[in-house]
Design a binder for these strands. Structure first.
Lengths: 216, 216
DNA sequence: TCGGGGCATTGATCCAGATCATGGCGGCCT
DNA sequence: AGGCCGCCATGATCTGGATCAATGCCCCGA
């Protein structure tokens, strides 16, 4: 689970934290390992991954600045986390969380609100993964990602993607090839522009929204 | 969002509730409508549905006895709910919830725990919908459904299904035909038995678990 | 400036599961 | 008891996206 808290609490939190940096690509949470610590992202973005034994992987989300990671339900991490690029993290013990929650009861409400938001997002993603076409998935992603990411793009219609095509594919339940082809078709259809691989411009938001909703 | 609370709170809750019955098939929560009330299931099971404009639907979960429904994040229901069979419900105003939470601060913690459990389940379902084959999806469903449902089957290996094949299909992101064929193959392979359409026996749990994990 | 390695794109072919079509069964209502 | 209707099973065919296979491009380091 991950989420955002207010600055006031973050200050108090930081007193209990150990700051650390991780290099690009580092897997700093491993699915199935003992969940003794949790993290707050202070710089960079992580991909959150669930895997099958044969290597198939599903990215269940991306965690940007401010998000909490590793607040597992059980004693074991339900998913892994890997740095998309260089990251900065604050590391806490789970005991520290209990202490903080006792100190700031309002935190409980905040965590609940965050969990609900994530649940809503997860339910939307189930609809996407279960019933949408590749084209609809990409359109939905391009519309929803900027909101989900903590650092929105420079303008409304410029999307800066810190992840690779393979990550997008694993997030949308597709293959790299299909993501690439589908983006090309959206580009050909003048719905988006792709000045560089990591940057996408929305040229026709209304059409993109229609596609995302399955109306085209 | 839905979940289970303790008897003590349920007693207090019931003082604020309006009991009501709904017939099989009734859509008692409509996706997109104003979320002014919420419900607690006291008998029966509901399917929770998200739909696309053209009629495609994804069932995001099943809510059995004890589950809360309609605790929307926004003022609008994020998904609909329909009775699988005749149901009994307790109806509350959202104002009543605020009142209850103030009265029992511990409720907040409970709701958080419930939301987390559902989030974990939702993430597991994302892996299923994004990356598993039809066979793996059915195996996972047969193993996970009895735990998710509040009323477990008579014995460990007997699963009683209150929903149709179409519901299972919409839950697993498949078609009715694929669900039917896949169950037939599992039956032929002696992994399960299907004495009647609504009842499934697990004959080889170990194999079913291997299939669900993607090892076969 | 050049070379190499990791992305990304694009093309050709394949296949799991969707779609289309039919028949059978079981429960329920009259 | 009979008939009807909704659900389930199964067969035939189709197809969106996966898989297999090159090639291109960009960035970075020496």
């Amino acid at each position: 689970m991950c989420g955002v808290v207010e600055d006031a609490d973050l200050t108090r939190l930081s007193e209990m934290a150990v700051e650390c940096e991780v290099a690009a690509g580092t897997a700093f949470i491993e699915e199935g390992q003992a969940a003794d610590t949790f993290f707050n992202v202070t710089a960079g973005t992580a991909r959150l991954i669930k895997s099958l034994p044969d290597g198939r992987r599903q990215i269940i989300g991306f965690a940007g600045v401010g998000h909490f990671l590793g607040l597992a339900v059980s004693d074991i991490y339900a998913f892994g986390a890997e740095a998309l690029g260089p990251m900065r993290l604050c590391r806490f013990s789970r005991a520290g969380l209990r202490q903080l929650l006792d100190e700031f009861p309002v935190m409980e409400q905040r965590l609940l609100a965050v969990a609900r938001d994530e649940l809503v997002a997860a339910q939307e993603q189930m609809l996407l993964l279960g019933r949408k076409t590749a084209r609809e998935r990409l359109a939905s992603f391009l519309l929803a990602y900027p909101r989900a990411a903590s650092c929105p793009a420079r303008t409304e219609d410029v999307i800066s993607l810190p992840m690779t095509r393979a990550d997008i594919a694993d997030y949308l339940g597709l293959t790299v090839e299909t993501v690439s082809r589908t983006l090309t078709r959206l580009r050909t259809g003048r719905v988006i522009a792709v000045p560089s691989a990591a940057m996408i411009l929305i040229r026709d938001r209304a059409t993109l929204a229609s596609i995302a909703a399955g109306e085209v």
